[in-house]
Amino acid sequence: MSPEPSRLALRFKPENASFKAKVAELSGEEIDLCFQCGACSSGCPLTAEMDLLPSKVIRYVQLGEEAVLESKTIWVCSTCFNCEVRCPRGIDIANVMEALRQLMLRKKYDRVSLDALEPEELRGLPQIAIISNLRKLTA
């Protein structure tokens, strides 16, 4: 993850406006409503696997910092909507995560390589797992 969170200026730079607007448009969420209470992060079942807490992802987006696209978090999110039901400001954080994933996927980025998956493993998996996985993680 770069830049280092500690070195990130907590000040919105006007040149970041377009990235912020794009995320807002794709997600349909009003990102500035977030006041960083952290309820989403405390309820998230997958934070142990994340490099940025969900609330920090939102902060990056507030600042329009495109570096958030390099975060592992957006791919670890399983869209379980625990954050959505917890957010006191009514932001659907899962939508924001999806917007960030989409920004990567639409640049021909594949998070999962189908070719790298073991055929034997694929054979045993229920369709529902493969369908949703490829839906979320491949371009």
Binding site: L46, E49, S78, C80, N82, V112, N133, L137
Partner: peptide, 20 residues
Amino acid sequence: KTKCCGAYHTVQMKEVVAEL
């Protein structure tokens, strides 16, 4: 009873799913 099981991560991150 309403926490996530890890869902589709079972394809490429089965250890994470096992944890959950």
